[in-house]
Design a protein around this nucleic acid. Structure first.
Lengths: 332, 332
DNA sequence: TCTATTGGTTGGAGCGCTCCAATGCTGTAG
DNA sequence: CTACAGCATTGGAGCGCTCCAACCAATAGA
């Protein structure tokens, strides 16, 4: 269980500890001869540097903390993937953590990540109050994904949720729909933007926007549909859901009520997660470039860490429509 | 960005650094008066201990490393949740990492976790060769979830995959099915066990087991069904899929081929992930107690870390059948 | 030949913390 | 009044590493 230290490697290679340190950090000012001696000794002992000791001594961590608002939502998993490969390519490690969509648990997760004194922090779809983010930003560079912020100390990476919702509406209108409802994301991140985009687009088409309160889960989507069907004698012919998860729940409830999707009611999701592309689901949805968002988040952090940038960056990505099997023209 | 240290707190509270350390670790041998003074100073400065420095000095880490074989499979997310709450309750932090179902990436992920010198390591459904696990076990206590092992140095937490498959077969046979196929999990963890359980159960019922090679993804499930339909003029009336993901893909392919589920073909999954319980999917499946498995994994690690246990523990959990809407009696 | 210069190498201090042995202090027994 | 617990408190060493200033050839320039 006791791993070898630099001292051990130095002894075997017959050099000083400082020289081993230089080799480990890939310094050019080491003779080829010594370098190979050190590397051989390290290999032989199975040595690899102690990340924590290194962080302590150098006062510069190579750890990026990532908090997923929800470990179960594939959207975040896919962003994390993008972040991971970008960070790894630059020699950074990721430590992941999850905050169960609850502000209290998120706050704990945030503190836990901060206690590692990470080089930077990426928060994916956080729901903690802005003040918590602000105080965390005093201790570490922060980038927010899928959450906007006015704080001048944090970077953000978002898709244009307003534009995305408009695309959804435009698509449905072009198919001939006039009565279109929106199930919103409640207090979830980005939900206000998506809601507003829906409302604006509807009005531009001369249509009355109708919004039902919901959340970013499939259970909430089903519930909202039930309420919607109860509230209207003739249901809308199309539904713009808060996200893919929500859409799947909505579809279930519609089918349970005897309505066929898409023949009777078209449904459109948001995110284009792996869920939407599953063939059994085959959901028309709005795509966010998830891996790209992760990459940009990593980049933003690295710019602050390495290049010392201090002014905030706001990345806004363009969503796009992905047409699958849950939308078609309304019934005659 | 520079967080306060113990030294700072000590200065403000007008005590020694060592005393602050005692307070932070909740030692009983500190007078109430000093304790409050220290806590107030810490509060005022916004101090929280530096996990890495602590780990270095105490030579005992409070970090548990977790490697998910696949960040996208909700099964692992749910096990991780169970692990998380159990670990947190005992004062341990989790650092998560993912290995994209590829041995090479997993090995990297493993090394990255080890470089933190964690107190223990939980590998969820790993696919790295056993030798890699063995050598990792020399550096840290290890528990394997959803993967069995003969190594005497590692603990394991598994469900009884053989029994689970039998349950699936028994269920289908009791509904009247005779021609039942299995789509297996290829080289994935636990897939050999599930396959064997299927074969044994079929033979016990006097039926011929038929196995099609597949994998733990929805695309593979769809592919296997296509091959199956091509191979047989009269398709089986029921399919036992490798896991839930695989089942969802299989269902899509069946429906695409004009077969209704469950009227023409019954399908049963494995894991009972959140995917299976989604109402639109409503998959009959075999439940594994995922959170419980996470809890047991944490417990196994903690026993090694704190109680110094050295002999391996093998936890075998009992799966159970969850009947939903994808199974029914075969067509007349 | 002597001094700069360069490139490679080294010991030592110190990162923020824990742990231990030693210290000071009170209170009680002798 | 001294002695000795017993307890609270403290300084110092050290965890494994980085970083810096110093050092030591060996070469180049004068």
């Amino acid at each position: 269980m006791a791993r070898p230290t630099m001292e051990d490697v130095a002894r075997v290679a017959n050099v000083s500890r400082a020289l081993v340190s230089l080799v480990m950090r890939g310094s050019p000012k080491v003779s080829a001869q010594r370098r190979t001696a050190v590397l051989e000794a390290a290999e032989q002992l199975g040595y690899s540097p102690h990340v924590m000791a290194r962080a302590l001594a150098s006062r510069t961590s190579t750890v990026l903390g990532v908090m997923l608002s929800d470990l179960h939502n594939p959207f975040f998993a896919e962003v994390a993937d993008g972040l991971d490969s970008a960070a790894r390519a630059e020699g950074f490690e990721l430590i992941i953590n999850s905050g169960g969509r609850s502000p209290a648990r998120e706050r704990r997760a945030l503190n836990s990540l901060l206690s590692f004194r990470p080089a930077g922090l990426a928060l994916l779809g956080p729901v903690v109050p802005s003040s918590a983010i602000e105080s965390a930003a005093e201790e570490s560079p922060i980038v927010l994904v899928s959450r906007s912020s006015r704080l001048s100390t944090v970077d953000t990476v978002n898709d244009d949720g307003e534009a995305g919702s408009r695309m959804a509406v435009d698509h449905l209108v072009s198919l001939g729909h006039r009565r279109i409802a929106h199930l919103d994301g409640g207090g979830g991140s980005q939900s206000a933007l998506r809601r507003r985009g829906f409302q604006i687009a509807m009005r531009e088409h001369g249509l009355e926007p109708e919004v039902f309160r919901s959340e970013y889960t499939d259970a909430a989507g089903a519930k909202a549909v039930k309420e919607m069907l109860l509230a209207r004698e003739t249901p809308p012919t199309a539904v713009v859901a808060a996200n893919d998860y929500n859409a799947v729940g909505a579809i279930s409830a519609l089918e349970e009520a005897g309505l066929r999707v898409p023949q009777d009611v078209s449904v459109i999701g948001y995110d284009n997660t792996s869920l939407a592309s599953m063939r059994h689901v085959s959901l028309t949805t709005i795509d966010q470039p998830r891996a790209e968002m992760g990459r940009l988040a990593a980049e933003a952090l690295l710019q602050r860490v390495r290049d010392g940038r201090t002014d905030p960056v706001r990345k806004l990505l363009h969503p796009k429509l992905v047409t699958r099997s849950t939308t078609c023209p309304p019934p005659a």
